[in-house]
Design a protein around this nucleic acid. Structure first.
Lengths: 335, 335
DNA sequence: TTGAAAGCGCTAACAA
DNA sequence: TTGTTAGCGCTTTCAA
């Protein structure tokens, strides 16, 4: 690897002169700067950011820790962050936690080791004590999920309210046997969404059945299994809320396999408003999230936190909107 | 920041002893190791990977450069790579190029600066000379797109053959006025796909019209605009191939806006077999890519290249399969 | 089993 | 305007 010493040697200069020339220091003559730059170019010199880090004490690295990059919300955030970082000359280190506290901890540890300046994280809900301690040392913005033990900066969704509205939409259509598939309740989002559903049911004095509720991984396959289970074990349900877009994808496949008419036999309510909801068959009624605004806001928060060490701001809580399409309709009559 | 010197001082040891204890060197007594580890834990010590890099000359970083993280193929690759890296204790640095040669160059430069061990890249098709030179110094695997001037390691799709098959499928259904929306021809994939279409048309001695062909960005909005343009400027087309999944999403929206019956008025052929193709309305006929196998293979190639500096392998070329669903049908009769 | 010294590549303070 | 010296945190000789 070519270093500034090689450049210096080849030019008969001191390596410090080379360093200053490359950094455009004002005490270096224009001629020398030009010679140094040319030689650096010729030799294919690339600065060693490890050495820079040691001298300056600061890297140009931001972390992004998400449970799933294939999730449309998180990939939108990744895009927004990557774009801003590219502009400002930062690097993005991506960590996929798959909701495993150990992997989350390892990612945070590695970010601290590389002296990352900050991190955007969707906490896994069971973050270890070590993770919490480490995050306390690093400016961070929480995405969607919120852990009050961590910092205050966060971009969230009014999940409980949203699921409440979603449930009321189904109740208004005459549904009483409404099933629910969602993320584990240990996630702040999972818990809040479930509460929104439960509260709406209770407020309407509708009898509930624990068997209607299936909580688990946010991957499509879980959605598929959950739907198939519900159809055989609870044949009397007339509506289904799937509170996570990737679970919904699996649920749709399950419904096709089982040849269930939607919304004729079963009304289906989605969450998040992923791009394909609109072109799906049937088009999905869902609670639409302003994904673009949220990503942009999260990125702004991150950079504000970098500029001002003690930057805080009231949590930004976005409200999803009910978008009625074809997948929900009146409850079928009892047989 | 806590360093090994702090630990050494607080324990009355030399910092070298601490270093060896933390690295489980055999010449350190079990008792000392235990004391050191405990103290490190207590003080919240995190190694400085910049300093490690300087000493060892090697980081634990892999790069991933893609044009678009929201693209389902690339997010699948990101996931596969991130999972493997998490297991092996590597970090993934994500760069989104948006098909801009300058951004691509900056990402590669930054990866070299951080002494990344390797990079997986979907080259933007107009990579700068500097990018090529830098990539020559870094083990790399090309994704989907292939630039022969770079290294041989690549995971590709038999694009030309696939589009040929797609076009023949439409020809067999009686279509003669077949339009094509795809990526710019400067991308190896864009060019090959276009050729597959053109060759199939020519082989069938079907008259062609340059106005049927719309090439541009792979974002959904381009697909939407292109479809709307085609519908007004070439009303006689009876079939449409959209050779990129994200363009297809936009195209579907455009077709809905224009209230075009698919496949009644226009047959629609997709490319790639994204998860939502199956649940779309109508379900999309497309050329399915083995995304999972391809991601896994790319990751394997990357790690092989890391282990063996001069590892090469015949390019892995995957063949898409025609999956017939509802969006293609017989050509409508001329009016 | 532990310590002292050197050096990785870079930048900043000080000297010439 | 340029050069000398020192030191960031770490690991690796070599010495005790």
């Amino acid at each position: 690897m070519v270093t500034i010493k090689h450049i210096a040697e080849s030019l008969g200069l001191a390596h410090t002169t080379v360093s200053r020339a490359l950094n455009d220091h004002r005490s270096i003559s224009v001629a020398t700067k030009a010679r140094v730059r040319e030689e650096a170019e010729r030799l294919g010199y690339i600065p060693n950011s490890g050495a820079r880090l040691m001298r300056n004490g600061a890297s140009r690295i931001l972390g992004l820790i998400v449970p799933d990059v294939q999730n449309e919300f998180f990939s939108a955030v990744a895009r927004a962050l990557a774009n801003e970082c590219a502009q400002q000359g930062y690097q993005v280190v991506l960590g996929v936690s798959e909701d495993d506290p150990q992997r989350e901890e390892e990612h945070v540890r590695a970010l601290l080791a590389s002296r990352a300046l900050g991190v955007m994280v969707a906490p896994c809900g069971r973050s270890t004590a070590a993770t919490r301690q480490m995050l306390a040392r690093l400016p961070h913005v929480q995405l969607l999920r919120f852990d009050a033990d961590l910092g205050p900066l966060s971009v969230r969704v009014a999940d409980e309210q949203a699921l409440n509205a979603a449930t009321r939409h189904l109740l208004a259509l005459g549904h009483r046997h409404i099933a629910y598939i969602g993320a584990a309740a240990e996630l702040s989002t999972g818990g809040a969404r479930l509460n929104g559903y439960l509260n709406a049911m209770q407020a309407a004095s509708v009898a509930q059945d624990p068997a209607w509720i299936r909580l688990g991984s946010t991957l499509p396959e879980f959605g598929r299994q959950a739907v198939l289970g519900l159809l055989t074990e609870c044949p009397d349900i007339t509506a289904l809320i799937v509170a996570s877009p990737r679970q919904l994808l699996g649920a749709l496949k399950g419904l096709r396999e089982a040849q269930v008419a939607v919304p004729g036999h079963l009304s289906l309510m989605g969450y998040g408003d992923t791009e394909w909801f609109e072109v799906s068959n049937p088009a999905i009624t869902g609670m639409a999230l302003p994904v673009h605004d949220m990503s942009a806001h999260a990125t702004r928060l991150m950079f504000s936190a970098l500029r001002e060490p003690h930057f805080t701001e009231a949590a930004a809580i976005f409200e999803p909107q009910l978008v009625t399409r074809e997948s929900t309709g009146p409850a079928r009559r009892k047989i």
